[in-house]
């Protein structure tokens, strides 16, 4: 499938025009990666925006005491690497391929150009970024609810 068609199918791209999608697609490079490939290392700067096209990517975090735990598994159609890229700060998570994956990546320079404040494409691209961050936080809150269920046992029921 062409990257352009893949992007067009994403709900968060609903406000982007066909020309916008062409610009985003032109700024990305599609590659296949082997199992265990690490896209982002925790505590290191990330300089690309990634979009998972096929396969799974695990997001993990080394917490206090060095204990590692998985925060979420990224599904095709999800972007990753946004916070570190946007803020220019070391990443707070590690993102690693869980099996062979196909990923599109966008360099920092193109990301900055697309995220132009007050430009039409910038505003619409911000909606894409905000949608992904909301999804990430939503998944994180779900994980916290599962943690509550584990800690407090069967008395804690989760909403579907």
């Amino acid at each position: 499938m062409l990257l352009r068609n893949f992007l067009r199918s994403l709900p968060s791209f609903q406000y982007l025009s066909d020309a916008d999608v062409d610009h985003v697609a032109a700024a990305m490079r599609v590659e296949e990666y082997a199992n265990h490939h690490v896209f982002i290392y925790q505590d290191k700067l990330n300089k690309e925006l990634f979009l998972l096209l096929d396969g799974k990517v695990k997001v993990g975090h080394y917490g206090t005491g060095g204990r590692y735990y998985t925060l979420k598994t990224i599904q095709p159609g999800e972007f990753f690497g946004i916070p570190s890229l946007s803020e220019g700060k070391p990443a707070s998570t590690t993102c690693q391929a869980d099996g062979p994956v196909t990923v599109a990546s966008m360099p920092f320079s193109a990301y900055l150009l697309l995220y132009q404040p007050d430009s039409d494409i910038g505003c619409r691209f911000q909606f894409v970024i905000a949608s992904q961050l909301a999804r990430d936080l939503h998944d994180r809150h779900d994980a916290l609810r599962r943690l509550l269920a584990q800690v407090y046992g069967d008395g804690t029921r989760l909403n579907p």
Partner: peptide, 27 residues
């Protein structure tokens, strides 16, 4: 006023990135 929405969205993005960072650690 798409510019107003754009600037509000930027603020939402900043807040969500802060919250993602804060909640990466387990409670």
């Amino acid at each position: 006023d798409s510019v107003a929405v754009c600037r509000l969205t930027h603020a939402f993005i900043k807040m969500m990135m802060r919250r993602l960072h804060a909640t990466a650690n387990n409670p």
